[in-house]
């Protein structure tokens, strides 16, 4: 399968700040590619370069076969983009918003109107079609914004944090829509800070930090990369936590994460139940009270923590390496 999106060595600087530092990407046609990373990792900058909003300082990229710097106009005719903020006009109705986008894609007035109605129906906005967007809920706005990205039926779609700030129900309904699109063959590049979103939607995931890709693979590959199981312990005091961290360090196959406020710790291990038994034995020998103990498979959160040393939602946990 040819690649719908290719980026090689993209660099973007803002003064002294390096937003992108050698970003490489390859997204095969008809797949969903997830860019996962914390705020400031370079996800949005990448999308802005690929959608021709910004020019890279170095490197090059092609989308649907068009160069992002040299073939701006034809490239724009082959992409749809939906941003973090729903870029819809409050004073216009849902239908007027979509018709305007259709006319700006030069579909012609009749076709623009028809396409607007089709999309409103598909996104479950028919009832609200002739009301000003002002009265829409956050979820409705995002759906309308996404509909705007689909007006010209683009083969490549960019979704920059499509569900940030939405309630769980609105997120789930947006996820369904995105899944449907992919089933129809659209190539999607999705940025997100939510693991579950990447897990649910993306065929392949690139973990991004400090402006470049630090890990790449399917969700399962990334989880395997982090190692096998993890022991989660809940203790009763900070002193115990410190002792336990020292005591259990030999068992860990990666970094041990501790949460000093909740007296909790996570230890990546191999060997499953045997490792848990061994850990509990060591803690008992040190007379440490264990409030709760458990064994679980890694999640993408763990992948992220292990790879970047910080959490996705901006909270920094203490990491003992």
């Amino acid at each position: 399968m040819p690649d719908a999106i290719v980026a090689e060595g993209l660099v973007k600087r803002y003064g002294d700040v390096v937003a992108l530092d050698g970003m490489d990407l390859a997204v095969p046609e008809g797949t969903v590619f997830g860019l996962l990373g914390p705020n400031g990792a370079g996800k949005t900058t990448t999308v802005r370069i690929l959608t021709t909003l910004l020019k890279p300082d170095a490197g090059h990229a092609r989308v649907a076969g068009f160069d992002v710097v040299r073939d701006v106009r034809p490239l724009r005719a082959h992409i749809g983009a939906s941003g973090q903020y729903a870029a819809v006009d409050d004073h216009l109705t849902g239908a007027e918003n979509l018709e305007m986008v259709g006319r700006l894609y030069h579909l012609g007035t009749g076709r623009a109107k028809q396409r607007a109605r089709e999309l409103l129906e598909r996104f479950d906005l028919t009832e609200a079609a002739d009301r000003p967007v002002q009265g829409y809920s956050g979820g409705m706005r995002r759906r309308l914004d996404l509909a705007g990205a689909l007006v010209a039926d683009p083969p490549v779609l960019f979704l920059d944090e499509p569900t940030t700030g939405l309630d769980p129900r609105a997120r789930a309904s947006l996820w369904d829509v995105i899944s449907e699109l992919v089933a129809e063959g659209t190539t999607v590049l999705l940025t997100t800070q939510y693991m579950d979103e990447a897990d649910r939607l993306a065929d392949r995931i690139a973990v991004v930090d400090h402006g470049h890709v630090i890990a790449l693979g399917t969700a399962d590959q990334l989880k395997d990369q982090v190692g096998g199981d993890r022991i989660e312990l809940s203790l009763t005091s900070a002193a115990d936590l410190a002792t336990a961290t020292r005591t259990l360090a030999p068992l860990a196959v990666g970094s041990v994460q501790t949460d000093t406020a909740a007296f909790r710790m996570t230890i990546p291990v191999t060997g499953g139940a045997a490792a848990l038994t061994s850990a509990l034995g060591r803690l008992a020998a040190e007379r440490i009270d264990v409030r709760d103990a458990g064994l679980r498979r890694p999640t993408l959160d763990d992948v992220f923590l292990t790879l970047t040393g910080h959490e996705t939602d901006g909270k920094i946990k203490e990491t003992v390496r």
Binding site: T52, G80, Q84, Y85, D89, V101, L104, H106
Partner: peptide, 11 residues
């Protein structure tokens, strides 16, 4: 972000 949308259109 309305301009971002406009600027990704072939207008």
């Amino acid at each position: 972000g309305v301009f971002d949308r406009f600027r990704t259109l072939p207008m």
